[in-house]
Design a protein around this nucleic acid. Structure first.
Lengths: 212, 212
DNA sequence: TGTACATCAGTGAACGCGCGTTCACTGATGTAC
DNA sequence: TGTACATCAGTGAACGCGCGTTCACTGATGTAC
């Protein structure tokens, strides 16, 4: 029982099929793209009958949500790491933006699935509210960078703005027409940094110290 | 023959099926969303057999491209109008951004289809290069607003930045978690304006007049 | 002006496909006694 | 420690569905003579 996770031999009872299905789904996303992500394909990839997933997920979209959720968590980790490694508060914002874009670039199908699920439900999901989520890291980084923590509206606006900019760049970065510009700016990361920096995802200083 | 376009009576030869199919597709998008947009559904909606579209489009994706192209053209028109109506160059940028976001909000399924087609091909398409495209209007509006027309890299960067910001806002604006903020900012248009303004989609002044 | 005919733009039936989901089932597991 | 049994987590066959695409066809059109 305890060693079930690591064994390659198939047994009738899988051990942790729920997790295996999510991983299989991610493998399909990576190898074949979002349009190949069917329930049957996931079951097939996990080496299990088409009916098996129904013991773990209500229906197809329930499984997709689980996959998306894992994506949001990993995005949160990437953002947290980028933030932690920044030398100062302003650099933290840039780093976060670049990390966000790189996550989307490195996991394009997963990223697409995450947003598709969000769009279908018209909500980003509960994950944004959790501590350690990408969203809350952006928010805190903005405070670190001088945003007024007492001006809730301003803070929300800044968070949304930074998020939108990063999302926009994430979706544009793959387009061929930007190849020359990317090359001129030192690759995709340089491109992302330059665009985000140009647009300006940083905090506006709080009113008190605005006259700088 | 001449009056064929306006007649309701169905004749064996349709007259302008190509155009009718694009319109049917848009009707489906509006009423049932992107996932309902199958070739068969479009033919059905146009009142024609499933094989008929093949006389006008190579395959399904060819039809989708035609629908997307119409979307890009209309987006260009909306952007042009917003730009033309602005009192000054800076306001033009904001107006363009808001118009972009409103277009996406008012035609969500079409907008999605436009970007999906673009992502599949990894290119935004030739439309961006045309005069009167949304893209070229943004570029020109940035020059009007003080961007250095001789600094091509800077100009491209500014255009990409503004476009990314607008796209980001367009995709975020539907999420429920922003309802309170939208309400506080006077609705969706106010929200879009505030976020775009906060992020800053404007031109950086050319070096010559940078010390303002 | 009339007719023969090539071409065009439809039809409708059929193809094979993969999908999500359900169902009755069965093998494996763990627990109560 | 052994056994009976409830429960759990699988199987595999089947359902109906809508899809993209192809095919031989036919009705309508327009043009050459």
């Amino acid at each position: 029982m305890a060693q079930a996770h690591d064994q390659e031999i198939r047994r009738y009872h899988h051990g942790d099929l729920s997790r295996a299905l999510v991983q299989a789904g991610r493998r399909i996303l990576e190898n074949e793209g979002p349009q190949a992500l069917s329930l049957r394909a996931v079951a097939r990839e996990a080496g299990v009958s088409p009916a098996a997933p129904y013991h773990h997920f209500k229906d197809k979209s329930d499984l997709l949500e689980a996959i998306a959720k894992e994506g949001w968590m990993e995005l949160g980790v990437a953002v947290a790491k980028a933030r932690a490694q920044a030398p100062d508060a302003r650099a933290a914002m840039t780093n976060i933006g670049v990390a966000y874009v790189c996550f989307a670039r490195d996991n394009p199908a997963l990223y697409r699935t995450m947003y598709d699920a969000a769009c279908d439900r018209a909500t980003m999901g509960d994950h944004v509210k959790e501590a350690d989520s990408g969203w809350s890291h952006v928010r805190e980084a903005l405070i670190d960078a001088g945003a007024d923590p007492n001006d809730e509206r301003e803070l929300q606006l800044a968070t949304v703005g930074a998020w939108c900019a990063a999302h926009g760049v994430a979706e544009m970065i793959g387009f061929r027409e930007f190849e020359p510009l990317k090359a001129a700016l030192g690759g995709e990361e340089g491109f992302a940094r330059a665009v985000l920096d140009h647009v300006g995802i940083y905090a506006r200083p709080a009113p008190a110290n605005r006259h700088d």
